[in-house]
């Protein structure tokens, strides 16, 4: 039934958008992490979305195809007293762009809200359909 399939499509979008929010949270939390798990400065993570046809049904859902590391160069901060500073006194900070991440967060949360709204509408329509002739 097409109306119930909408729940699957919107559900896939909710999952994808929350993965994006997750990446934003991780980036913002590590905006000042000089050393990551591998000892190098943290690299910003970005999710890449991909349209995916629903298995055995019509409609196109969405999923996270991959999580890529931002290729932007590390932000260099002059701080010779820092133990992580190089010979010239520069510390390589993560390449997280805080403004960009905030915008990304707002966009993800708006998309999430839109899809949650769609789920509500689809549920309401399905219930009305079940009540035909009553």
């Amino acid at each position: 039934m097409s109306i119930l399939n909408i729940l699957h499509i919107a559900g896939s979008a909710l999952t994808a958008q929350s993965a994006r929010l997750n990446a934003v949270a991780s980036n913002l939390a590590n905006a000042d992490s000089v050393a990551g798990a591998d000892g190098r400065p943290y690299k910003a993570k970005q999710v890449v979305f991909e349209a995916v046809p629903m298995v055995g049904r019509d409609g196109v859902g969405v999923r996270v195809a991959q999580v890529v590391e931002d290729a932007a160069p590390a932000r260099l901060v002059y701080d010779p007293t820092n133990t992580a500073a190089d010979a010239q006194g520069y510390v390589a900070m993560p390449n997280v762009n805080v403004v960009e991440e905030m915008v990304n967060m707002i966009s993800a949360s708006r998309s999430y809200q839109a899809n949650a709204e769609i789920m509500n509408t689809a549920k309401q329509l399905a219930l009305r359909t079940l009540a035909i002739g009553q």
Binding site: S2, I3, N5, I6, I9, A10, S12, A13, A16, Q17, R20, V48, F49, E50, A51, D58, G59, V60, G61, V62, S107, A108, S111, A114, N115, I118, A122, L125
Partner: peptide
């Protein structure tokens, strides 16, 4: 309705 929900779900999908 399903087609439109696919469009909204993919509002941020490249291409």
């Amino acid at each position: 309705q399903q087609l439109l929900s696919s469009n909204i779900a993919n509002a941020d999908t490249p291409h």
